[in-house]
Amino acid sequence: MSGAQLLKLENVTRSVLMPDDSELHILNGISLSVSEGDHIAIVGRSGTGKSTLLNILGLLDRPTSGNLAWRGQDATRLSARRAAHARGRDLGFVFQQFNLLPGRTALENVMAPLMYATGRDFWRRRTLATEALEKVGLGARLDSMPQTLSGGEQQRVAIARALVRKPRVVLADEPTGALDVTTGRAVMELLDAATLESGAALITITHDINVAALAREQFRLEDGVLKGLAAEVAQ
């Protein structure tokens, strides 16, 4: 029932050079396929490379080796400029620390991605951003500054910002990490429902098994490789 393939990782590795000239292998051969409508959760202990993987999936970082295809095209050779355009058009990010732009109102934050859009979307940015905020239930807080909003509200602004350009893939790095359990659950349900409605793929990184349970596919990142969680449970 999955739609068109969006991202395909084959044997992707990522290692970084440490200050003492030794190599740190973070990812050791990841294979993963993401299609439209997929809801994927990746769990793993701290420091296992979850964020590193998400950065690669989000075209923010490049693999050290292996294949990465973005909508059928080799993404390891994508120019920085094209990668930026692809991110703007098709990818949405939600971060653990919300990462709202300080000093800007909720509305300005949601308008910010549309500053990199062209044509109609750019000129209609105020309307589009207002609609997006109304969808996450913040229609009454358009002019609030981030620091006057609660954690859950800030994360909802971030979700509106991630969705405002109607991306095909939404990448969420511990979206509930800074929230209490109930708020976190509400935020997760919102993210789930919104991507279901738009048909976007959702990849969530979390260390909370309950959060992961909402997704239809679950993986565990361990020792730099992905393991299907369902299989693990079946064992």
């Binding site: 989000g58 400029r81 930026a84 355009h85 991110r87 703007g88 058009r89 990462n99 910002r161 350009r165």
Partner: peptide
């Protein structure tokens, strides 16, 4: 720098 990183994540090119 953090703010620049955030903007880059939603599509700002280096030129921009």
């Amino acid at each position: 720098i953090r703010e620049v990183g955030i903007r880059r994540s939603f599509g700002a090119t280096t030129g921009r």
